[in-house]
C-alpha cells in the first residue's frame, strides 16, 4: 500500500491559530480553530499534538506551509517548507475551491482585507490600515457588552425590521452610538443589524475603496460566520455572497496548498516529524544597542538551540543566523 501523503497548513493569527490537514486533492481532512490567547507557542504546540493523533494510519506529512502574522515564529517551530503572507495564501485557497471567484472579502480578528482575482491570479488587494472597527475583535467586544453569545449575533440581526443607523467610522464612536440608540428605545435586533450595516459600509469605504467588486464574491475569515454581516454585504453589493465551507481556516488551507506546490516543484520537505516539535520552545528578547533605533530582537530557541531571530530593522541579527545555517549546509 502506498503511503498517504498529507499536507499541513498553519495560519497563526492574532486572534486564532488554525491548522488543517489536506490530502493531495486539497480536501480538508481535519481542521482545528484555536484561540491564540496571546500564547502562540503553547497553543500551536497543543494544536499540532491534537492533529497528530487524528492522522489516518499509514499517512505522512509531505509538506508544511505557514501563514498569518505569526508565520515567522510558526515557520521556525515546525521547519516549514513555505512561509507566505496571508494575501497569497487566501487567494490560493479560493482559486483552488472556487475558480471563477473574482473578489474575496476577508475579515479576521484584527485585520480585514479585500483581494481581487482576475484570470486565475491575484490582481489587486488592500488591507485595513488605520482602524480595526469592523473586525472580529470589535464584534466580540460588542457581543460581550450586549450580553449575547457571539454565535447568536448574526441570526439576531436577521430578525430586524427597521435597522437603526449606527456611526461605524470608529470603534469607539460606534459603541457610544449604540448605547445612545439603546437609550432611545430601539430594539436590540435593530441595533445589531444597524451595526452590521455600519461595519459593511466602513469596510467598503475603507478597505474596498476604489476596488471593482465583481462576482463571484467570496466572504471568509472568522467573521463570515456572522449571517448578519453576510446579509448586509449582499444588500450593499447587490450580488449573492458565497461563504465557503472552510471559511474560518482558508488561510491555513492556502498555506497547505502552497506547500504542496513547493514540493511538487521538487523541493524536499524540511519537516522532520511531529516528534521534533515536542521540544521545549522558548523565546527571549533583548534590545540591540547597535544604533539609536534600539530594535527589540526576539530570539527563538528549541531545546536551548537558537532557531531564529527577528525584529531587527537592519537585518544584522536575522542575517547572521541565515549565514550560519548556510555555513552548516556547506560544511
Amino acid at each position: 500500500m502506498s503511503k498517504l501523503e498529507l499536507f499541513l497548513g498553519l495560519d497563526v493569527g492574532s486572534v486564532s491559530i488554525n491548522l488543517v490537514l489536506l490530502d493531495q486533492r486539497y480536501r480538508v481532512l481535519e481542521k482545528l480553530y484555536l484561540r491564540t490567547q496571546g500564547k502562540p507557542i503553547a497553543v500551536l504546540s497543543e494544536g499540532l499534538e491534537r492533529l497528530h493523533h487524528t492522522m489516518p494510519a499509514g499517512s505522512t506529512i509531505a509538506g508544511v506551509g505557514v501563514t498569518g502574522s505569526g508565520r515567522e515564529l510558526a515557520g521556525a517551530m515546525v521547519d516549514a517548507d513555505v512561509i507566505k503572507n496571508e494575501i497569497t495564501a487566501h487567494g490560493m485557497a479560493v482559486l483552488q475551491s472556487i475558480p471563477d471567484a473574482q473578489t474575496i472579502l476577508e475579515i479576521g480578528g484584527q485585520d480585514s482585507k479585500i483581494i481581487l482575482l482576475r484570470n486565475g491570479v491575484v490582481s489587486d488587494f488592500a488591507m485595513n490600515t488605520v482602524c480595526a472597527a469592523g473586525t472580529g475583535s470589535f464584534l466580540d467586544r460588542q457581543a460581550a457588552r450586549l450580553n449575547i453569545p457571539i454565535q447568536d449575533f448574526g441570526s439576531m440581526a436577521l430578525k430586524s425590521r427597521s435597522p437603526t443607523r449606527i456611526a461605524g467610522r470608529c470603534a469607539v464612536f460606534a459603541e457610544s452610538d449604540m448605547i445612545h440608540k439603546q437609550q432611545m428605545g430601539c430594539s436590540l435586533e435593530d441595533i445589531i443589524k444597524g451595526l452590521c450595516e455600519a461595519l459593511v459600509r466602513n469596510y467598503l469605504n475603507n478597505v474596498g475603496k476604489g476596488k471593482e467588486i465583481l462576482p463571484q464574491i467570496v466572504f471568509q475569515g472568522g467573521v463570515a460566520a456572522n449571517e448578519g454581516i453576510r446579509n448586509s454585504f449582499e444588500e450593499a453589493l447587490g450580488h449573492p455572497v458565497i461563504v465557503p465551507e472552510h471559511y474560518d481556516v482558508m488561510g491555513a488551507v492556502g498555506a497547505g496548498i502552497l506547500a504542496h506546490k513547493a514540493i511538487q516543484r521538487g523541493q524536499a520537505t524540511k519537516f522532520r516529524g511531529f516528534h521534533s516539535i515536542r521540544g521545549k520552545f522558548t523565546a527571549k528578547s533583548f534590545s540591540c544597542s547597535g544604533c539609536a533605533n534600539l530594535c527589540e530582537i526576539v530570539e527563538f530557541f528549541s531545546d536551548g538551540n537558537i532557531k531564529a531571530r527577528w525584529g531587527d530593522r537592519c537585518g544584522k541579527w536575522s542575517a547572521a543566523l541565515v549565514n550560519n545555517s548556510q555555513a552548516d549546509i556547506l560544511a
Binding site: 502574522s69 513555505v82 507566505k84 503572507n85 496571508e86 494575501i87 497569497t88 485585520d111 491570479v121 491575484v122 490582481s123 489587486d124 488587494f125 488591507m127 490600515t129 502552497l258 506546490k261 513547493a262 516543484r265 530593522r313
Partner: peptide
C-alpha cells in the same frame, strides 16, 4: 507598523510574479 508593511510588499511581489507567470514562490 513594520509587520503589516512587509506583508503588503510580499503580497505585491507575489502578485507581480504570478502575473508575469514566473514560479509561484
Amino acid at each position: 507598523g513594520e509587520a503589516g508593511y512587509l506583508t503588503r510588499l510580499e503580497a505585491f511581489v507575489d502578485l507581480l510574479s504570478q502575473k508575469k507567470g514566473t514560479v509561484y514562490e
